[in-house]
């Protein structure tokens, strides 16, 4: 069981390395979107510091969203997804491997880059650490929930706009708790509750998402 999981992750990472431009695009998108807000509004440091938690979280959300179709689109197009569906191992396990690889490739770089953008927004010290930690705990949930949407829209006529419409409302709790942690830490309040809630969201989606994604994939492959 573990062997196939490692193998799937290794394969997806290898594919991502071979097409490293795709990975970089998502990262650059994150930076560009986050840089637009000061230009569109007031670059005053106090205003920026108030905006920072929300803007950085929304930017990360959108960047994560942008990379979602890639989880399954390639495998769907070349038929390897069908091979996975008829493999002896449970499809939900293979899906979990693919989601983990997606998180490593698309979300983890965002988390690592976030402190840099946080500095641009005048975050320092504890709030900056809290931002990175909240993203670290929150982005796996985004990948897990997003995989359901990616599987549901596979092969449909929805185009690019359908996936955000399906997935973004489901992202709202993570956004609220994630950004809330940073806001609380800026105000000097206790942040433990936010991390517990983010952890709960992660565990719940870890249980539900691979199963729901596997069901959705089987529907798409019919």
């Amino acid at each position: 069981m573990a062997a196939i999981l490692i193998e799937i992750v290794r394969r997806d990472l290898l594919l991502a390395v071979r097409r490293s431009a795709d990975v970089a695009t998502v990262l650059i998108f994150f930076v560009v979107v986050a840089s637009l807000f000061p230009l569109a509004g007031n670059p005053d440091p106090v205003v920026l510091r108030n905006l920072a938690p929300g803007v950085l979280w929304v930017s990360a959300l959108l960047a994560c969203l942008l990379s979602l179709p890639r989880i399954f689109a390639g495998d769907y197009a070349d038929g390897s997804l069908e091979q996975m569906a008829i493999a002896p191992q449970p499809l939900s396990l293979l899906v979990l491997g693919k989601i983990f690889a997606h998180w490593l490739v698309s979300a983890l770089p965002l988390v690592l880059l976030a402190p840099l953008l946080g500095l641009q927004y005048g975050l320092q010290g504890e709030p900056l650490l809290v931002l990175v930690a909240a993203l670290l705990l929150g982005t796996p949930t985004l990948s897990l929930i997003g995989a359901i949407g990616a599987a549901l829209t596979l092969g449909g006529r929805g185009g690019g706009a359908l996936l955000p419409v399906l997935v973004l409302p489901l992202y709202i709790p993570v956004l609220i708790f994630g950004a809330g942690a940073v806001v609380a830490s800026q105000a000097g309040l206790e942040v433990r509750a936010y991390f517990l809630l983010l952890g709960a969201c992660f565990l719940l989606s870890l249980v539900v998402a691979p199963w729901a994604t596997a069901v959705a994939l089987r529907i798409a492959l019919e």
Binding site: C201, L204, A212
Partner: peptide, 19 residues
């Protein structure tokens, strides 16, 4: 497909409400 979405949504509705 819509059924899977509705189930995921129904699980999420209380979480969204409280968040």
């Amino acid at each position: 497909a819509a059924a899977v979405l509705a189930i995921v949504g129904a699980v999420n509705v209380p979480i969204i409400y409280f968040s």
